[in-house]
Structure formats: structure tokens, C-alpha cells
């Protein structure tokens, strides 16, 4: 039966090798502009290292893999872990039940502290209670600002999504906007819905939600273009993640609309887009800070018994507005991928 496949299978690696060789020959023409060579080599925020005994901290989030935002949280946590002589165990699952299992996994590993996002607070309740029973201190970050105290978490680092949304809406009022479209890239996501709801609450003009398929960029682009054509009075497109703002800026061009783009969250391309005026402003909740503080806080609690906010008040990391005025200040940090 393999009469036809055998000679092919022998010939095939040779073909690939030939193609690869051909490709390498093309490498003769390299690029003089951009690329790795042009990228600044910058070290991470590396201060000294604590000489406290090695401890183990688990950071468990509800992040979907491969999201620029969550990558910043992880980087902040890693920086703190390096500094504090902490062995950091990072794990994540967008599925609530799986995230709860990951907490159990951390308890089984007898970690010295757990940092957790409470995006789906009810699903995490039992797991958090178990961790407390095992004597493991738990801190919250990013999601769960309404629930961390009730579940007995030590402290909380994050942004109140509704507050951020409301601040966003006020900023739009200030800029004289009349009609905003809020682009939600994952339908049914609680925090994203809360942001748009917050915008709607304080914004004096009209706010319309628009749902797009976040994993399919061409579809995101088309859908925003369609919305801008459908309603030509839209003067602000509000996106809830940096990559979508960059795409929305293209849609504005395609639809020949006069709308401006504003967004929640930053990434390194966003800085350039703000400098160029493609994106009007961004609201940063400083994810790096959230990750850094939660690991550092667990270290501090173990070594000196401190905890921020006294278990009563959350520690707010945002909202911080970034626009043309102040973008230069953070540009070099964003270029490193840490802000």
C-alpha cells in the first residue's frame, strides 16, 4: 500500500532541505532598518537580591494564553520574585473550574503564599477557603475588587473596572465627545462588560456596545468599519485592549470616518500610536505593578508581617491616563515590554 509513499518520503526531506537552503541564500539581503539590531538592549529592573530564605509563591490567574496584558502581570511578578528570592509558580486558566483546581494544586505543593485573580469569585470561594485553612496567605489582584474582603484575602491590588470605566467616560465628556462605540472583544466577559457599563454611566453622550471576535483580526477590522459606516456620527471608538485599538485605527481610515480611538490598557505599539496621534489616549491599570506588588506583598507578609490597606481597603493601581502629553515619559519602559 505504500508503493507511492515510500519514494516520496525519501525525497521529501531532501526537498525541504533544498527549500531551506534556497531561503538561506536569500538571507544575503538583510534589512538595514528596524529589527533586533535596532532594538534597544535594556535590562529588567534588577536591583539587589534579598537574602531571606527561599520561599514559594503561586500566581494563579484567569488569563487566556498569549495575551499581552497578562504577560505584563507575569513579568512584574517575575521581577519581584527575582528580587525577593522567591520561587514563582505561574499558572492560568480562563475556565473557572480549572483555575480552582490550580489553587488546589498550589495547596498540595505547600506554597508559602498564593496570589489569585477573582474574575469568577463564587467559583473560587471553596478553593480560597481551603488555602486559608492550610495556613497559606492569599492576596488578590486584577479581578475581584468587590469580593476579596468577603473571602478573607489579605490584601488586593488592582483597578476598579467600573471606576476606570467611569473615569474614561468623564475624560470623553472633557474632550467633547458625543457618540461613542464600546468594542467588546469577548462576549460575556464580566470585566469587559463592566468597563463599557462604567463608560456609559458617566459619559454624557450616547454609548453603543459592539461585539467582535477577538481571535480574528480581519473580522474585528471589518466589523468596526461596518459600525462606523452604519452610524457616521460616531466620534469615539473605545476599545478594551491595546491590539484592538490599533486595528480600530485602521478601521477608522477604511471607513473614512472622523472618529478618534481611545482604549483601555497599553502595550509597546500603543506608545507609538499615541505619539503619532492614531490613538487619542489610553487608560493604563499598570498590570506590571499588580503582578509585582502581589508577589512582593506576600514576601513582606512572611518576612515582616506587613499588609497593605490593613485588610480594609484595596490598593488601586489605576486608572492612569496616557496621552500625547505624557506618553514620552513611559515610552522607554513600554519599549522594553514592561509597562
Amino acid at each position: 500500500m505504500d508503493r507511492t509513499s515510500r519514494p516520496r518520503s525519501r525525497r521529501f526531506p531532501a526537498l525541504v532541505a533544498a527549500a531551506a537552503a534556497a531561503a538561506l541564500m536569500v538571507t544575503g539581503c538583510s534589512s538595514d532598518s528596524g529589527g533586533k539590531k535596532a532594538e534597544e538592549s535594556a535590562d529588567n529592573a534588577a536591583a539587589g537580591k534579598a537574602d531571606t530564605p527561599r520561599m514559594k509563591v503561586a500566581l494563579i490567574t484567569h488569563a487566556a494564553p498569549g495575551d499581552t496584558f497578562w504577560d505584563l502581570i507575569r513579568k512584574g511578578a517575575e521581577a519581584a520574585a527575582d528580587k525577593d528570592n522567591v520561587d514563582l509558580l505561574y499558572s492560568n486558566s480562563p475556565d473557572a473550574a480549572k483555575q480552582a483546581n490550580l489553587v488546589q494544586n498550589a495547596i498540595d505543593q505547600k506554597v508559602d503564599g498564593i496570589a489569585i485573580t477573582l474574575a469568577k469569585p463564587d467559583a473560587m470561594k471553596a478553593a480560597v477557603a481551603k488555602a486559608k485553612k492550610a495556613g497559606i496567605p492569599v492576596v488578590g489582584l486584577n479581578g475581584g475588587i468587590d469580593d476579596w474582603k468577603e473571602q478573607g484575602l489579605l490584601e488586593y491590588f488592582g483597578q476598579d473596572e467600573s471606576v476606570a470605566g467611569e473615569a474614561f467616560g468623564e475624560k470623553l465628556n472633557e474632550l467633547g465627545a458625543k457618540n461613542a462605540v464600546c468594542v467588546i472583544h469577548e462576549q460575556g466577559h464580566v470585566a469587559l462588560e463592566a468597563r463599557c457599563a462604567g463608560v456609559k454611566k458617566t459619559f454624557g453622550g450616547k454609548t453603543t456596545n459592539l461585539y467582535v471576535n477577538g481571535t480574528n483580526m480581519p473580522a474585528v477590522k471589518s466589523t468596526i468599519t461596518a459600525k462606523l459606516k452604519q452610524d457616521s456620527s460616531v466620534d469615539y471608538v473605545v476599545t478594551l485592549g491595546a491590539p484592538f485599538a490599533l486595528t480600530a485605527a485602521q478601521s477608522v481610515g477604511d471607513a473614512k470616518s472622523k472618529a478618534k480611538v481611545a482604549t483601555f490598557d497599553l502595550n509597546k505599539d500603543m506608545v507609538k500610536a499615541i505619539e503619532d496621534g492614531d490613538v487619542d489616549f489610553a487608560v493604563d491599570q499598570q498590570p506590571y505593578l499588580q503582578g509585582y506588588l502581589s508577589v512582593d506583598a506576600l514576601w513582606l507578609y512572611k518576612t515582616n508581617g506587613n499588609f497593605s490597606g490593613g485588610g480594609q481597603e484595596p490598593v488601586l493601581t489605576g486608572p492612569a491616563f496616557v496621552d500625547k502629553e505624557n506618553v514620552a515619559d513611559i515610552a522607554k519602559f513600554a519599549a522594553k515590554g514592561t509597562r
Binding site: 521529501f12 525541504v16 531551506a20 534556497a22 531561503a23 536569500v26 538583510s30 528596524g34 529589527g35
Partner: peptide, 28 residues
């Protein structure tokens, strides 16, 4: 292209080889 600071066409061609190899792997 970025890491080796190559002309982007090099990356385009290597990507074609990789994509075809993935297909061939599945088929084989």
C-alpha cells in the same frame, strides 16, 4: 525577520517552507 534583522521577504519564504512542512507532517 526581526530577530535576525533580515529583509522581510526572507521571513516570508521561510514561513512558506514551515507552513508546507506542517501540512506535509499532517498528511504524512
Amino acid at each position: 525577520s526581526f530577530q535576525l534583522s533580515l529583509n522581510v521577504w526572507t521571513g516570508v519564504i521561510v514561513a512558506l517552507v514551515v507552513a508546507l512542512a506542517v501540512g506535509a507532517f499532517n498528511g504524512y
